[in-house]
């Protein structure tokens, strides 16, 4: 149990150190950075992938794109992509890092949005048109609410991806919680490594919980079929 005691010693050392809580390298500032980068990348990914997935699922055009992007995103090594973009575009701004982050988080949302819309019962579509809903209304009032569980699942998977990749991106100079881990590892400051890792893990778990809550709030009980009969 030697490692367990040193583990706790490092934690105490990291979180107990007042310097770690203040300034631009302090925990609150790093946390905020991590949140900003992840949220920015996820937001951009949602803005690209949801409309694209809706249109492809609704019209059935461009399905190849979905399949290819899904497979490619899994196969592409994140670290390699990050290094490539930084070598190509330099480190003057955060964009050389944000771009690959977005690229990697588009496919899960795209695939699931597409599958969600595609999987809506054709009878339901038919009924919607038959009652006189217009194309946009069918999409917005019927297809999206019914596909919402899958759309949110896609966003959740992307969020997992983004939080992890943001951490790796610290290697190429991006701020955020990953800094503690990367810098600590380089300088053999294990308190920093362990403390930073624990912070990132907690961060990832909180994000998951938030998505689970969003799912409960946003998805109609008629779709998730967990309504209490009054």
């Amino acid at each position: 149990m030697n490692w367990l005691t040193s583990f706790f010693a490092w934690l105490v050392e990291f979180f107990g150190n007042g310097d770690n809580w203040a300034g631009s390298g302090g925990i609150p500032a790093r946390l905020l950075e991590h949140l900003e980068f992840s949220a920015l990348a996820l937001l951009l990914a949602v803005l690209i992938a949801v409309p694209l997935g809706l249109v492809i699922g609704h019209t059935g055009r461009g399905e190849v794109l979905v399949v290819i992007s899904a497979n490619l995103a899994r196969a592409l090594p994140t670290l390699g992509l990050l290094v490539m973009f930084v070598l190509l575009l330099g480190t003057a701004s955060i964009w050389p890092v944000i771009i690959p982050l977005v690229l990697l988080s588009v496919p899960p949302i795209l695939v699931n949005t597409y599958e969600g819309v595609k999987g809506v019962d054709p009878e339901l579509r038919d009924a919607a048109y038959g009652m006189g809903l217009r194309g946009g209304q069918v999409l917005g009032r019927v297809l999206v609410p019914v596909a919402l569980p899958l759309i949110l699942l896609g966003c959740r998977l992307s969020a997992i991806q983004v939080v992890a990749t943001t951490t790796v991106a610290s290697y190429t100079g991006l701020g955020g919680l990953g800094r503690y881990v990367i810098d600590g590892f380089a300088t053999k400051d294990y308190a920093s490594v362990v403390g930073g890792s624990v912070l990132i893990v907690l961060f990832a778990l909180v994000v998951q919980v938030l998505f689970a809550l969003a799912q409960r709030v946003a998805v109609s009980p008629g779709v998730s079929q967990r309504s209490k009969v009054r």
């Binding site: 951490t167 590892f185 930073g196 890792s197 624990v198 893990v201 990832a204 998951q208």
Partner: peptide, 18 residues
């Protein structure tokens, strides 16, 4: 599900001590 949500890098780092 929880395991799947954990980012790989911090998990590697934490495992180093073991």
């Amino acid at each position: 599900n929880v395991v799947y949500a954990l980012p790989s890098l911090p998990v590697f780092m934490l495992l180093i001590s073991v």
